[in-house]
């Protein structure tokens, strides 16, 4: 059962990283426009001649 010494802190750390990720995404406004986000994911990429995707 010594494996718990590694696994438990590892699991907790992963959970904590997930939480930080969520808080970061919330802070950067990723939940402000849920309808738009759904469509952006499947929008066609622009032709390579353009300067990247419009931000």
């Amino acid at each position: 059962m010594e494996v718990l010494v590694f696994l438990v802190p590892l699991a907790l750390a992963l959970g904590f990283v997930g939480l930080l990720g969520f808080l970061w995404s919330l802070k950067s406004g990723q939940y402000d426009d849920l309808d738009g986000a759904a469509w952006r994911a499947i929008a066609d990429d622009e032709p390579a001649s353009d300067q990247g995707r419009s931000r």
Binding site: D32, D33, L34, D35, G36, W39, A43, D44, E46, D50, S54, R55
Partner: peptide, 21 residues
């Protein structure tokens, strides 16, 4: 997509973002 693409081609525009909701 139409609005964002069109407006970001205007020079000196740094960001044009639509909120669909």
């Amino acid at each position: 997509a139409k609005i964002e693409r069109n407006l970001s081609t205007i020079p000196d525009v740094t960001s044009a973002r639509v909120n669909l909701t």
